[in-house]
């Protein structure tokens, strides 16, 4: 057999030819359709029974601003409580101790298994079960004085959040390779130190996106505390429309504020993610 030539002939020369742009007819069509639908919706709202002047007037009124501050304070505190509880419960859940494991599983079962609004009402009405609370011989008080709307909302939201956060934390801890526990043990670390120094910092990276999700959920869940008279955003908006009957306008005001807060939280989450991504990216040397 003859040795093959280096390159066979018979293929046209394509060098210098460019790939033509595709027209994408369907994209143009669907975009136009969506613009039309949005315009129709906007027109309907513009001609509907909404006094937009009320919306702009009440957007920055003092009671609404106080409401948004209370909403943010409650969301931050309840989330902090939820994260602390979540970490503790997740560690208990992954412990070899069957008592701790069972207690942790029971906590998650109870607080995930009942509606949040029911839990808030139970905390707020605790005085019906225990008229006085305290430590025997040291301190006691009437439960109605202690269980303010603030405390009831904090406990209700925070403890409920802890049940959800514990599962997020547990998933994060399980995502860390078993070899990391072993390497930590091999340099003499105990279980808790290994968790704190080695496992949790790595779990945080996995856990931040779902926790951001949970926090956004929490900002909106604080509105449930309006049923126990906590003066958050929705509660204050309701109080105004009880007086002036501008129901839709004030609900839009509250909605705009919730949207604004959530919009600010998203880039903050990105910053946090970058902080905990240390060592996972091939950084330029």
């Amino acid at each position: 057999m003859k040795p093959a030539p280096a390159l066979a002939g018979g293929f046209p020369d394509l060098s210098g030819m460019r790939v033509a742009r595709e027209p994408h007819w369907f994209r143009w069509f669907s975009a136009a359709l969506i613009v039309l639908v949005l315009a129709a919706i906007a027109r309907a709202f513009a001609n509907g029974q909404i006094e937009w002047s009320y919306v702009s007037r009440f957007l920055t009124v003092k009671v609404i601003l106080e409401g948004i501050v209370n909403t943010m304070v409650m969301a931050a505190l309840a989330m902090a409580l939820g994260i602390v509880l979540g970490i503790v419960v997740a560690i208990m859940r992954l412990s070899p101790n069957p008592v701790l494991k069972t207690v942790a599983a029971g906590y998650t079962w109870l607080f995930r298994g009942t509606p949040l609004i029911l839990q808030l009402l139970l905390w707020f009405n605790l005085a019906l079960v225990f008229p006085t609370i305290g430590i025997p011989g040291l301190w006691s008080a009437r439960a109605v004085d202690v269980m303010t709307p603030f405390l009831a909302a904090l406990l209700g939201l925070g403890i409920n959040q802890g049940a959800y956060t514990s599962e997020v934390m547990r998933a994060g801890m399980l995502s860390v390779d078993i070899g990391q526990y072993e390497a930590a043990q091999a340099i003499g670390m105990g279980r808790l130190r290994a968790l704190r120094r080695i496992v949790l910092p790595q779990a945080m990276r996995v856990v931040i996106p779902p926790l951001g999700n949970e926090f956004i959920g929490m900002v909106k869940a604080t509105s449930l505390a309006s049923v126990i008279q906590y003066p958050e955003l929705l509660h204050n908006a309701e109080n105004i429309y009880y007086a002036n009957s501008r129901v839709i306008e004030l609900l839009i005001v509250a909605g705009l504020w919730y949207l604004l807060v959530v919009s600010i939280l998203t880039p903050l989450q990105m910053l946090l993610e970058r902080r905990f991504a240390r060592g996972t990216l091939r950084l330029a040397r």
Partner: peptide, 29 residues
Amino acid sequence: GRQRLKTGMVFQRFNLFPHKTALENITEG
């Protein structure tokens, strides 16, 4: 933990702590 300090272990898959620098990996223990 005290007894383990008498032995050093090197793993097949290295198991370095990915969130710490080479130096921090060594100084951690």
